[in-house]
Simulated assay, not measured.
Amino acid sequence: MPRPKSAFESTYPCDFYEPSDLLEAGQMYTVYEIARLLQELEPEAELDRETEDILLDWAIPWIMINADDLVVAEPRTEDEPGYYGLAAE
């Protein structure tokens, strides 16, 4: 349900990383690793499932919005997610 802005102590600009600021050239990342990087965590950081699900809510739209700057690679195995990296290195 919507809430009035006055219900919040403060608000912040909605700035997102550019792919080249977030990802290293020559590396490929899973959506889970990108979700962690968007929160300034290490790609291997241990998270509980609930927190990881919340971070994915940010990462999936970020990937879609920045699709023109990314490449995708098929998973190496059936039980692994796909990988994303910078389109231009």
Rank of each mutant, 00 (worst) to 15 (best):
P4E: 13
P4A: 08
P4H: 04
K5N: 09
S6G: 05
S6A: 12
S6E: 15
F8P: 09
F8L: 08
F8G: 08
F8M: 08
F8N: 07
E9M: 03
E9N: 10
S10A: 14
T11R: 09
T11E: 11
Y12F: 13
Y12G: 06
C14V: 09
C14K: 12
D15F: 03
D15L: 12
D15W: 10
F16C: 02
F16I: 08
F16H: 13
F16R: 12
Y17E: 01
E18R: 15
E18M: 14
P19Q: 07
S20D: 12
D21M: 11
D21G: 11
D21K: 13
D21L: 04
L22P: 07
L22V: 05
L23A: 06
L23N: 01
L23Y: 08
L23P: 09
L23K: 06
E24R: 15
A25K: 15
A25Y: 10
A25V: 10
A25I: 06
A25C: 11
G26Q: 09
G26Y: 02
G26K: 12
Q27R: 15
Y29M: 04
Y29E: 00
Y29I: 04
T30E: 07
T30P: 05
T30F: 10
V31Y: 03
V31E: 02
V31G: 03
E33Y: 01
E33M: 08
E33C: 05
I34A: 00
A35H: 00
A35Q: 03
R36W: 05
R36K: 15
L37I: 02
L38W: 10
